[in-house]
């Protein structure tokens, strides 16, 4: 404290009990406590609802933070269950990779994904590659498909696979006819339109990769484009939560299990909450990140790193199908 008196000695000062920041600290502490209590309350609420078996079209309550009612598609293949989940690898993975490279290896979006002989696993991932893998499955391995975002959340919850330190592409997120990836975005909007589905141009739609096909396209910077299918029409959904401001936090227990996305986003960091990356335009990939971040932010559809993995799910035991995945 500066010398506020001339008569008397400032060194002989008593320490005032007044803390200028006390109110602010107490306010922050209270806010945190209230949030924590609210989280606990919603946890209990959700638990009770699960026990009562919530109806499919029920809209979850809005706690006043940024959230939105989720509109579920009329046909819900997202209720596809699976019993087995594995990383594309082993002899099986090697073969699948060879076939994908044979067909689409002319583009970096595919060729950067490789089979790691030493670890016997396919390393790297791009939305194009994941789509290509599903194309192969559609021809020969109908029991398999690549995981959706909801599948990954189930895997996290059941510890079926260790997803930390890796990333996995699951879907595309279509928002606006703008960059990033305006060409591919416009093409997808047109495809929906041709099927009499007029998507809003200021929302966010999740298109699971397992429902798409690839098309060679010289006009695309990636030399490839996506084609929607009947399965796409059945499985795509609108996800307004992906329009929230990027960098928010969510609680793993506050998830819509059917779509694998959070129902509520917070903008104060809370311990053990995960992050949600979003943006407000164009076409991007949806993936589960290394620290279990859910990201729909990255611009590049061809970005590929060696900690990427292709997650395969199935209702049938791969070993009983004569498939060597290790």
């Amino acid at each position: 404290m500066k010398n506020t008196h001339i008569l008397g000695d400032s060194d002989n000062n008593r320490i005032s009990r007044y803390d200028k920041d006390l109110a602010r600290k107490l306010n922050e502490e209270t806010e945190k406590q209230i949030r924590q209590e609210e989280i606990e309350r919603r946890k209990r609420e959700l638990e009770e609802k699960r026990k009562k078996k919530i109806k499919e079209n029920e809209v979850l309550p809005s706690p006043g933070t940024e959230t939105s009612p989720i509109t579920l598609p009329t046909i819900s293949p997202l209720s596809l269950d699976f019993k087995y989940a594995f990383f594309l690898g082993g002899e099986f993975g090697k073969q699948i990779n060879e076939k994908v490279q044979e067909i689409y290896g002319f583009t970096e979006s595919i060729s950067k994904v490789i089979y790691d002989d030493q670890n016997r696993v396919v390393t790297g991932s791009t939305p194009f590659y994941v789509t290509a893998v599903n194309e192969i499955f559609q021809e020969q391995y109908l029991q398999f498909r690549t995981a959706t975002q909801a599948d990954l959340e189930k895997i996290i919850k059941s510890y079926a696979l260790d997803l930390r330190g890796k990333y996995e592409d699951t879907s595309l997120v279509l928002r606006k006819k703008q960059n990033p990836n305006v060409y591919v975005a416009e093409d997808l909007f047109d495809q929906f339109k041709s099927r009499d589905l007029h998507l809003k141009e200021d929302s966010a739609y999740v298109i699971p990769l397992f429902t798409l096909k690839l098309r060679k396209d010289d006009s695309s910077e990636y030399k490839l484009s996506f084609d929607i299918t009947d399965s796409t029409i059945q499985n795509y959904f609108e996800a307004p939560i992906l329009l929230s401001t990027s960098g928010g936090y969510f609680n793993s227990v506050e998830m819509d299990e059917k779509i694998g996305l959070p129902t509520t986003v917070y903008f104060t960091e809370v311990a053990e909450f995960r992050k949600l990356g979003t943006r407000d335009s164009g076409l991007v990939r949806l993936f589960l990140g290394r620290s279990l971040v859910i990201s729909s932010y990255d611009e590049s559809l061809s970005g590929c790193f060696n900690d990427g993995r292709i997650v395969i799910v199935s209702n049938e035991d791969p070993s009983k199908l004569g498939v060597n995945i290790k």
């Binding site: 005032s16 009990r17 007044y18 803390d19 109110a23 602010r24 306010n27 806010e31």
Partner: peptide
Amino acid sequence: GKLGDYNSLS
């Protein structure tokens, strides 16, 4: 044991 500004409290 500390004093604060009451009007700044929420």
